[in-house]
Design a protein around this nucleic acid. Structure first.
Lengths: 318, 318
DNA sequence: GAATGATATTGTCCAGGACAAAGATTTGAC
DNA sequence: GTCAAATCTTTGTCCTGGACAATATCATTC
């Protein structure tokens, strides 16, 4: 989603006209905050009621307006939740504590020199150089290692930097666009192996992070697979129809950490039931990693590293 | 947080019971409808209150559940609204009348043979052939004409077909992904002309249609411009920062038809004010076309055809 | 014919209650 | 000890109905 939140009345315009006591320009309306943080209006109001945070001011009409520091804190909270923290434990925490939690989890020490190089280029807005760096690494490492060793860690690093306020929104946008360009390009030029499977790629509704899907696609074409990207947010019934229409050998689904575990498990079970037996079902992403017990007939991809091996297994089985 | 979809659909049951009339499986919750139609929950409830449509049933907990025909009708209404119709006039109309309105506006007769060919390929799920068709046309027509004569009309045709229920959701997804792939690929291989401008490309928050932006980007690289895609949904303040950091010559914004006219005008005015004079500001998209009176210092792009000429003008001015 | 103002339409926001769904924890069985 | 079912807590979504801001449309004036 955005999430798909229709706000024909653009709050961006309202932001500037609000007369707040503090700098009115940077105060955000509730729908602006919904857009910026991904927390629904209902949730924002509920947290205020239950936890006492956020505590927006009110404009002259009694409507909530959020100062930027509260929005930043909400973003931090959101990001920690994506990593499995629960609201009750962290909504009350002050920014310093949140920061501590965030850095504690992201093994920053691990980040290699080349990751830092890329971060530096993003921060200094040297796009052509960034693209060049990507292409160099791509050629040197090959697509597979490029995805695993460069894109994956860099993406988390960018996310962390953004959470800490080191990157602006537009800097994250720039990064995402560039990576997408490089990956899509590499995917398009890859050769298809007729022995390799046809893989339908998508995610359940509410899974917005297309970059993850793109990474999977890249790794699959490395193995010669034919990929059929369906984009994000495909309802289950549509997945079944598409898989049959496309004569897919495998349906691969991606779940981000934010996706509720039980729903993922349930959705996978029912999808498995309605999908022909001949079609394999693979599931991956942070959410799936947490599901301990396997699901009958569903292959859990716990790490992107596994993908190559799984494709090899599939071939052997035919 | 992405809104959680409370639709644990059970396609297994769907297989067994062919009774679709009251099939609980295909009934959608209000948030599922929000996702499918792009109409917010508030709007859905409000229309029910004011116009008596939609008229969802209630599940055992008293929560709204929408049968598929009502969802389809909502989609039709939504699409007509995107074209400038007002809710009050069309929410009460029956499906046949909606259909009539829709076809009346979309000069279907215009659709050339090659558009129909492409539609046929999408409907029959022949992806490689579709891709091949695109690439053929791309080479024959060149990128510019490809975008203007093929992609633009085809995209509206696909949208219309979806509205009429001729295409499934996944079929639209397939189409979008394929076009994106072809366009991004063409863009990546284009040569940059050092005399041409650097153009920052994005849209205001709530503008989701990235395909439109991609078309503009393609047309710009045709003219040798350097494009800096920022993706969609960039807040105004971020646009200014990015334009300066990237030393852009031009900032180009895209607005879909759904975007409220006055807000577009207001947003453009304030953006113009906070942007250095040396940076041009271009605005395009269906919404901008409706703004009669020009905005000082803003170049209105009323049609994609104009882009090439505008770039030429820009060069001459330097 | 363009600016201005009045009127009608349409969408967003609010409050606070209710309760379903997800997660955590305990209990019971093998 | 491990798994699974049952229970309790937490957390998010949905509900109603009122208020009113934002937008479109129409009438009036210059």
């Amino acid at each position: 989603m955005d999430k798909v939140v229709p706000t024909p009345q653009d709050p961006a315009a309202r932001e500037s006209t609000k007369d707040a006591s503090a700098d009115p320009v940077v105060m955000l309306s509730i729908s602006a905050v919904e857009r910026d943080t991904g927390l629904s209006k209902d949730v924002l109001r509920m947290w205020e009621r239950r936890y006492g945070f956020p505590q927006p001011l009110r404009d002259r009409h009694g409507e909530r307006i959020y100062p930027p520091d509260q929005v930043a804190r909400l973003r931090s909270i959101r990001r920690l939740m994506d990593r499995g923290h629960r609201p009750g434990k962290i909504v009350g925490l002050d920014p310093a504590a949140l920061e501590a939690l965030g850095t504690a989890q992201s093994n920053r020490s691990e980040s290699a020199a080349d990751i830092d190089d890329a971060l530096e280029l993003i921060g200094s807005h040297h796009l052509p150089e960034l693209r060049q760096l990507f292409n160099q690494r791509l050629i040197r490492q090959g697509l597979q290692r490029f995805v695993l060793d460069t894109v994956v860690p860099l993406t988390t690093a960018v996310g962390d930097a953004w959470m800490r306020g080191e990157f602006a929104v537009f800097e994250e946008h720039l990064y995402t666009e560039q990576v997408q360009g490089v990956l899509r390009n590499a995917i398009a030029t890859a050769q298809v192996n007729s022995k390799a499977p046809r893989v339908l790629l998508t995610s359940f509704p509410n899974e917005l992070h297309s970059l993850g899907l793109l990474m999977v696609e890249a790794l699959l074409v490395c193995e010669g697979a034919t990929t059929i990207p369906l984009g994000t947010e495909t309802p289950a019934s549509e997945i079944v129809r598409a898989a049959q229409a496309q004569r897919a050998d495998i349906v691969a689904l991606s779940f981000s950490a934010a996706f509720p575990e039980r729903q993922a498990a349930l959705g996978l079970k029912t999808l498995r039931a309605s999908l022909p037996d001949a079609i394999d079902l693979w599931a991956g992403g942070a959410c799936v990693r947490r599901i301990r017990k396997g699901i009958d007939g569903v292959t859990q991809v716990r790490s992107l590293d596994q993908l190559a091996g799984l494709v090899a297994d599939w071939r052997r089985a035919r």
